[in-house]
Design a protein around this nucleic acid. Sequence first.
DNA 1: CCCGGCGTATTACTTGACCTATACACCGGT
DNA 2: ACCGGTGTATAGGTCAAGTAATACGCCGGG
Lengths: 142, 142
Amino acid sequence: MLITVDLHSGIPVYRQIIEQVRFHVASGLLAPGDELPSTRALSAELAVNPMTVSKAYGLLEKEGVVERRPGLPLVVRARRRRAVQRERVEQLRMALAPAVTAARQLGIDGDDATGIFREMLGGAAGSDRTGATAAPPGRRVS
Amino acid sequence: MLITVDLHSGIPVYRQIIEQVRFHVASGLLAPGDELPSTRALSAELAVNPMTVSKAYGLLEKEGVVERRPGLPLVVRARRRRAVQRERVEQLRMALAPAVTAARQLGIDGDDATGIFREMLGGAAGSDRTGATAAPPGRRVS
DNA sequence: CCCGGCGTATTACTTGACCTATACACCGGT
DNA sequence: ACCGGTGTATAGGTCAAGTAATACGCCGGG
């Protein structure tokens, strides 16, 4: 089972699913063309409502990570390296925007701020408020 | 009127108040010892409930930005430069944490991520999702 | 003393996010 | 035609955040 869920983590289930699929794709564990479990199959494994899985899959499709083909199972989408890289950078920019605002408000020098960021990137993967840790968390369900 | 509010921005009013006071203190517009409007006075100006202002003031006090003295008006707190700087760095770290997670998940190289951050810091102050822009936004209310 | 300012504890309403239950429509094999 | 599989639209239920209404206690000046 690639995907697991912690119902008591406070993190919405559909987000946990999205994060884990994204991570597995980014890590290469899921390659383009690989099939994902059907909405109902995954919902049964995770003991959640099919609609919850459907929501996650729908967002993953809108995000371009995954592709739906009528009748056939959901597959990981193949994309050009260029496009992938552009999207990754865009994602990072969005995650960075609040920090940029904060640095300005706090009057922190650009070089200092950059230094702090670099230091945090270098350190061990600590816990974070999003629960979106580098390695999929939570107890196994199936 | 130093503090203004946009009721239709989607950003909680009490947060808007906090952000603006923080910003004015950081910018020097509000100096240590300066007095803030009373809970009721500000609530009247902004056309919100006194409890909303009280919540904002309470959090600002817990944050150490401001000081309550029984009977007397709320004042901007004087603090050591060292402590101020430490707190600023801590604030920035918190704002940066999600971006660090994102960079790891996306598999973006540390140097690349740092470069993007530096570039964003250098650019003009763009809009952001938090509404915590460098200059207090919103229409005047009073 | 008391009255008008202050701050806030308590309670309740509104809203949005999240999840579920239900039910509908589609498709391929028999 | 039916049946077992698929996906999802719709509506409702639950919960927490944000705000408001109300009401209480405190203090200083007349």
